[in-house]
Nucleic acid binder design. Structure first.
Lengths: 144, 144
DNA sequence: TATTGTTATACTCTATAACTATA
DNA sequence: TATAGTTATAGAGTATAACAATA
């Protein structure tokens, strides 16, 4: 945040700061590919939700993560193709497809979680635990 | 942030919360196109930097905003084509191109600034001024 | 050799529209 | 008529590589 030019106005805009901080987190994750499976953060989040909610439907994944049905479809397809997730037709609603982790998916979820948690600790190292909690709390209030 | 499924792990990840909050801000801006010129937030930031630093070079814009030279070139070209920004060759360094606002650019900057500031107030309405300041301070510590 | 800027290109993210199948 | 899911497509955002002109 140290520049040779006057950037006072932009440095006060929360939307700008969110974009910069978010991009910085994404860059840190991508810079350490050796620490876990070749999954993007959103896919680890999907494994987390399926692990905690076996049989969850695709649409519920999307709603929870703020991703449209149309965009989550190929992400699920990729996890199915990698044999980390299984689709099972709902016995009570022929439209729903229920998602479950495979044994490989359970392993990928645990390794992916460890990678994310190391990444979070590293990328937010300038904050202590107390400030991490304050930041989480403030950010949650900006998400409807 | 209220879901019917268990999303406790993902809701604790700062990278995830940053992505959601940032996307929410961008959606609010895009949802109110009538409030200012047809510029994206990053272009208003560029006008802000040129207004505060007349003669700034393209590369300095990029460095300040965290955008690569290769990606800021077309953004500048678009502002030049819209006659909001003028390029002037540096008298002392033939490689540099110095950027200045035109009279239209000055007007677009003021209107764009007002639009951004209304958008910021609206999208961060759940926070009071004190929490806005706390959030800015925490986010700045995540940007190198 | 290094720096400023440009073009081409590719991949990801997000959004809309149109479609099928089921309720 | 509404909902769950899919496919096609288009627009931004961001990344690398290769290039020209100047220092």
């Amino acid at each position: 945040m140290e520049h040779t030019i006057d950037s006072r106005w932009v440095d006060d805009q929360i939307g700008y700061l969110l974009r910069r901080a978010s991009a910085n987190m994404a860059a840190d994750y991508a810079a350490h590919p050796d620490e876990g499976p070749p999954l993007r953060p959103v896919q680890v989040s999907m494994l987390a939700l399926i692990a905690a909610n076996p049989g969850v439907a695709q649409g519920e994944l999307g709603t929870t993560l703020g991703i449209q049905r149309t965009n989550i479809a190929p992400l699920v397809a990729q996890l199915v193709e990698a044999a980390l997730v299984e689709r099972r037709p709902s016995p009570t609603d022929g439209r729903r497809v229920e998602l479950h982790l495979t044994a490989d998916g359970e392993r990928a979820w645990r390794v992916g979680r460890d990678r994310i948690e190391r990444h979070e600790a590293r990328a937010t190292a300038p904050l202590g635990d107390a400030d991490r909690a304050r930041l989480r709390s403030l950010l949650r209030r900006l998400i409807p």
